[in-house]
Computed example of a mutant assay.
Amino acid sequence: MTNRFQSKHIGMLAAVSGLIGASVYLLMINVTLAHIEAVSGHIPFDMRPFGYGPTEAATLLKALSVEGRNYYLSHQLPLDILYPAMLALTLIATLCLFAERMPNGKLVRFGIVFSVGSALFDYIENLGILAMIWCWPDVLAPLVYATSTATIAKSALTTIAVLLVLLVGVIWMRMPKADLRL
């Protein structure tokens, strides 16, 4: 497989996964998460980058009611199963595309690690939310703290991964044309 052929496929993968990820994200922000917030009057777990405690979790779960909790399970969480994978795939494919033309891949490797970590903690967060909803009203504080920690980790790792992709892109764009390996 030639580099040009491989680059084309990696670029296509980045574009397609990015389109799917962006579509799912917009659907979550504008429909499912907006509905959860409208029904409960509280910010959903997914949108609390600095976490939450047992009292906040109980307040949200109680305010959601049975219908709202079912909506979280049947609408938000299925979308949030697809989104982390699409985001990680987009970031990783973009990094790999830049890596083909960069001599030092250390930042690329860090970006890949943070992208995978972001997705992993998003899935852990989703499992925690699922468990909290299933356990309601008997949600244990350790479960809330574990889920909240996953939310914070997901938020931090996602931010770092995106910043690394942007940094690698800026470095790649600033490279002299002679240094580019096609």
Score class of each variant (00 low, 15 high):
residue 82 L to P: 02
residue 85 A to P: 03
residue 56 E to P: 07
residue 58 A to K: 14
residue 83 Y to I: 14
residue 85 A to K: 00
residue 59 T to H: 12
residue 59 T to C: 05
residue 67 E to V: 11
residue 82 L to H: 02
residue 69 R to L: 07
residue 79 L to R: 09
residue 79 L to V: 06
residue 78 P to V: 13
residue 59 T to A: 15
residue 76 Q to D: 00
residue 60 L to V: 07
residue 95 L to S: 04
residue 68 G to P: 01
residue 53 G to S: 09
residue 90 T to R: 00
residue 75 H to D: 00
residue 65 S to G: 09
residue 74 S to R: 15
residue 80 D to S: 09
residue 98 F to H: 14
residue 98 F to E: 07
residue 60 L to N: 03
residue 79 L to Q: 05
residue 58 A to Y: 05
residue 77 L to M: 14
residue 75 H to Y: 05
residue 96 C to F: 06
residue 76 Q to C: 04
residue 91 L to F: 05
residue 98 F to W: 13
residue 51 G to A: 11
residue 97 L to Y: 01
residue 65 S to Y: 10
residue 82 L to I: 14
residue 57 A to C: 03
residue 61 L to P: 03
residue 98 F to D: 05
residue 78 P to T: 09
residue 80 D to K: 11
residue 93 A to Q: 09
residue 90 T to Y: 00
residue 81 I to E: 02
residue 93 A to W: 00
residue 58 A to H: 12
residue 74 S to D: 09
residue 84 P to F: 02
residue 97 L to G: 01
residue 90 T to P: 06
residue 52 Y to V: 02
residue 86 M to Q: 04
residue 70 N to T: 07
residue 68 G to E: 00
residue 68 G to F: 00
residue 88 A to K: 03
residue 88 A to Q: 07
residue 77 L to R: 11
residue 57 A to I: 02
residue 68 G to Y: 01
residue 51 G to R: 01
residue 75 H to Q: 08
residue 84 P to N: 09
residue 84 P to G: 08
residue 95 L to C: 09
residue 64 L to P: 03
residue 64 L to A: 07
residue 84 P to H: 05
residue 52 Y to F: 15
residue 95 L to V: 11
residue 61 L to A: 07
residue 62 K to F: 10
residue 95 L to R: 07
residue 92 I to G: 01
residue 98 F to V: 13
residue 57 A to E: 00
residue 91 L to P: 03
residue 79 L to T: 02
residue 56 E to V: 08
residue 89 L to Q: 03
residue 54 P to C: 05
residue 88 A to W: 01
residue 58 A to S: 14
residue 83 Y to S: 10
residue 70 N to H: 11
residue 76 Q to L: 07
residue 78 P to H: 07
residue 98 F to Q: 12
residue 57 A to M: 02
residue 69 R to M: 09
residue 55 T to N: 13
residue 51 G to E: 02
residue 79 L to N: 09
residue 96 C to R: 14
residue 84 P to V: 12
residue 91 L to D: 02
residue 81 I to Q: 08
residue 94 T to G: 13
residue 86 M to C: 12
residue 59 T to K: 15
residue 95 L to Q: 09
residue 91 L to V: 08
residue 65 S to M: 12
residue 59 T to V: 11
